[in-house]
Design a protein around this nucleic acid. Sequence first.
DNA 1: TAATCTTAGTGTACTATATACACTAAGTAA
DNA 2: TTACTTAGTGTATATAGTACACTAAGATTA
Lengths: 230, 230
Amino acid sequence: MKKNLEEPKHLRFAVLAADVALMTVRDGTLLIRLTPVNRPPHFPNMKGLPGGLIDPKETAEEAARRLLREKACITSPDIYLEQLFTFSEIDRDPRGRVVSVAYSALVPWGSLSSEEQADTNDSWWVTPSSAHGLAYDHDLITATALARLRSRARYTTILGKLMPNEFTLTELERVYESILRTDLDKRNFRKKILKLGVLTAQKRKREGGAFRPAELYRFTSSKVTEIEIL
Amino acid sequence: MKKNLEEPKHLRFAVLAADVALMTVRDGTLLIRLTPVNRPPHFPNMKGLPGGLIDPKETAEEAARRLLREKACITSPDIYLEQLFTFSEIDRDPRGRVVSVAYSALVPWGSLSSEEQADTNDSWWVTPSSAHGLAYDHDLITATALARLRSRARYTTILGKLMPNEFTLTELERVYESILRTDLDKRNFRKKILKLGVLTAQKRKREGGAFRPAELYRFTSSKVTEIEIL
DNA sequence: TAATCTTAGTGTACTATATACACTAAGTAA
DNA sequence: TTACTTAGTGTATATAGTACACTAAGATTA
């Protein structure tokens, strides 16, 4: 029943890659970061997720963080990363056997520098509906990341990772509405989210608005917890 | 900002492995399948999850299925597999860089052959509390698989994958109770699970019992769906 | 400074779901 | 036929979800 494991090792290796679906929300709109992919003959002048090969001396997550820096021009060090899925289809890269460990990454728009917010030739933000026709299997990775985000939004506090340190309840509600693609009742949303006990009210109020200032809140814990939200 | 990708490919590879946490429930007790690991000097005469290297011509999932056959003596072809996590710690295998794609696998005890149910020197069943001190990072993989199973039991129909084709409501309740480690109210459990509409009553009843026969049910769909259960 | 503009913030009545709880029904075995 | 064991059911109460509309607060401008 047991098979001899001492087959030639050179037959048993793979090139390992990491790909990252970096997402943020700007003005209630979900955005994904894309970069150019130019790999003729299969992927000439195309777009894709920031990704690349994993180095022998780094973990997959370390590679994902490095690739966010190198490919997505994201220099902020504390991006929230979650391992998504490992894609190992034999032909997913036509140039050879490349297995990709995919990550989703979430960052509050407001905590990005102006360089990180900017669209350049090296990387830019698009809405998910514009993120089709990507190189490799990046359409699939994108769809997986979106589905996972929407699923986890229902029973975890993951959307806190899309919020700045301090935010108003209306801002939080807008993010939930944009991810879940639904309209929420303002009063019921507030009752529910406050009853969960995951938010702490701040002393300060949102300044600079043209109208009545709103109370500011923050997530009490930086951990994503499994409380049912919606 | 972009880095040259044309670094020597020979610097960028890893050996890819797959490991499987195969779980079942026998008499209301969760069991995990272990196999011997004998890899001196680091892992002499130890135990571990069924696992091994991925071949160049197979996906990670195909490797997981093959390894269930070769290492865990599981010949049933339709074992439910779910990709769990990819472990890429640099030193997780002291012999070299081995990245492991871990899977959890669920199988109903009753659908196993007597050979698959049996404990042999090649593979055997243990309770999770006995599955400590495993080789490599298999303690971590085991803990991850258990946590994921318990989490998913709360908001999906995944425990259907631990049930035989036909089962009684009491049998289903026992499985929920053993996974969630809690006592459930018989009437409330029945109301809830029946209202979900995921079960279909069968004409037949459980035969051979010494007492009143129970109605048999089956899961209407073979898909694991995201309905909140408990 | 009063009027206007815009977003912030709140409560209640109703419906649906969750929970706690105990007896009768059906078959087997002696 | 009696005893045994598991199957199967209902109701009252508490909790949570839902639908819905007005007042409050500050900034702007006429």
